[in-house]
Amino acid sequence: MSLKRIIRYFLLCATLVGCDHQEMNLQAHHLDAKRQGFDQEEIESLIREPENANDTVNQQFKNKDIAALFLLGMTKEEIRHMDREEMDFFSARSAANQWNELDEQTLKEIFKKQADHQMIRCNIDKQKLCTASTIYTDHKKKIMELTMSVSLLNREEHRYAVTLSYEWLADPKEKETDFYGILTTENAVVDYHKLYSSYKTYRDASHVNTKHDDKPYQSSVVGYVIKNSLRKENSRHFGYVYSEIVPSDRTQTYIDVEGFYVHANRKWRENDLFSFQDVSDGNRNDDAVTFKSPVIRISIRP
């Protein structure tokens, strides 16, 4: 069965909270006060004392390391549970030494209120980091939080870091095959040598299980997808996928990026097909639910 018949908009009852197949009323709420779980005052405190060990988020890092990971699009929850493999990967990213560019004016741009929730227009040269978090709720019960971030890595080659983070705010009762990834316009090229994803899950926060991937399950000219099976024995589930993109050529003036997460409440067979068009169209079926981030439009200076 093609995913074209599976992703048919937002039906979630049998999957999450067992409400006898009645239709869910999902609402999307976009967060303005915080970016990736941080408020502006927290980031300012990190850059005021960059060499101090961080005692609140992750004691393995200095404050400047937390600021650098924030600049790469990582959420506070991800940084809190980051393992050595992830630390090594991100320490090699070019933004790791750009934390000191988070001055007062840049932070003001990053944390400014976003008026357009369907599309966020990002002047990346000015802002350095554009980020949006969306919480999905049903009858005031929080279900899922998606955070989409784009940051500037190299101005000369127009290289950008793109991070999609997801966090289940409810225990998904059905734990089968999930998919998450990025949709782009065709004027973008993904550097798959720089792709990295992490899925973390636990019942007790002192025993966190981690799974890493560095290759997409499927990719095309309009994006890529990671395939993942949720651990059935645990109740807390969160993770991210990081990649780097460049324009397809120097004539491009913008790139659009959008994050998605598809939760299927059935087993996925190897011959089942994944269609990026279905995610874009938001088709309707009760076999899956699709969460999507706002589109971030990156303006590229000619």
Rank of each mutant, 00 (worst) to 15 (best):
R121H: 12
E104S: 11
K141V: 13
L107C: 00
A161I: 09
E86R: 14
M148V: 03
V162Q: 05
E145F: 06
E167G: 06
I110Y: 07
I110Q: 03
Q118E: 13
F90E: 04
I110L: 00
H117K: 14
E174I: 12
D88P: 00
C130D: 05
I143G: 02
R84G: 08
K142D: 15
L107F: 03
E156C: 01
S165A: 12
K113Q: 13
L146P: 03
K126P: 02
T137W: 11
T177L: 05
F90H: 00
P172S: 00
I120Y: 10
E101K: 15
K128R: 04
V150H: 03
K173P: 04
I143Y: 02
D83H: 08
H117V: 09
W99I: 08
D178G: 08
D138Y: 01
T184E: 04
F90I: 01
K173I: 14
L152W: 06
T147K: 03
Y180F: 13
T131I: 09
Y166V: 01
V150I: 01
Y166K: 04
R159F: 05
M87G: 13
M144R: 01
D88S: 10
I143N: 04
R121C: 12
T163K: 12
I120Q: 07
M148F: 02
L146V: 05
M148C: 06
D116W: 09
I124W: 06
C122I: 01
E101Q: 15
E101Y: 14
A96T: 11
E145K: 14
L152N: 00
R155M: 06
S165P: 09
S133F: 02
M119Y: 09
N154Y: 07
A132V: 12
A96K: 11
K113F: 08
A115C: 01
N123A: 13
V150K: 02
T131S: 15
I143E: 03
K108E: 15
P172A: 00
S149T: 03
F111E: 05
R121N: 11
A92E: 12
D83Q: 13
L183I: 12
K140N: 15
L102P: 03
D83F: 07
K173N: 11
Q127N: 14
T184R: 13
I182G: 00
S133Q: 07
C130I: 03
Q105E: 15
S133G: 14
T184H: 12
Q114P: 05
T134F: 00
A92H: 09
L146H: 01
D125V: 10
D88V: 10
I143M: 08
L164D: 01
F90L: 05
F90T: 02
I124A: 04
S165N: 15
E145M: 09
E156M: 07
Q105L: 13
H139T: 12
Y136T: 04
D125H: 10
K140H: 15
L129P: 03
L146R: 02
C130T: 05
F89T: 01
I143Q: 02
D83V: 11
E167S: 11
D125G: 11
A95Y: 10
W99V: 05
R121T: 14
R159Q: 14
R84C: 09
W99G: 12
D138R: 07
T163L: 10
E109C: 04
E109K: 14
E157M: 07
H158F: 13
E85A: 12
K175M: 04
I120P: 03
S94R: 06
